[in-house]
Amino acid sequence: MKVTPLTKIIFLSGFLAAGFLLIILSCALWSNWYPLYVVGIFLLAPLPNTLFTRSEFDDFMSDSSSNTNDFAKFITAFLVASGIALPLVLYHTRLVVLPATIMSTSGGLLIYTSIIVFTLFFQDSEDEF
């Protein structure tokens, strides 16, 4: 069964909107806007890999490209783990309640996975040319 790109884009935008909905609900239901930082962290998280990872420079003989790739991967993992850890810290210090923690974490992971899957689809469609 062949899935058309339009279906993929529609489903991904649905997931992205669901993620934003979860995070904004987790803020607005308790009128406590601390979990909104999660959106910023998860939107920043795919940036270093897309900026620094170039496949034409990904040559194992040259050191500098692998170093910048390592730095980008380090920053990416740092941001993703921060996005998971920030709601937990907010819950532990009782700045937000437990349902808001769960909703903001799952919403942030939805946003991040939809961005990652979108780039994967885009690369696939580019390889077919």
């Binding site: 991967k73 380090f74 990416t76 740092f78 783990a81 850890a85």
Partner: peptide, 14 residues
């Protein structure tokens, strides 16, 4: 390994 290292660093800082 690099991803794991970044995640561990974030764990420590948080």
């Amino acid at each position: 390994g690099v991803y794991l290292s970044g995640a561990l660093y974030a764990l420590g800082v948080w």
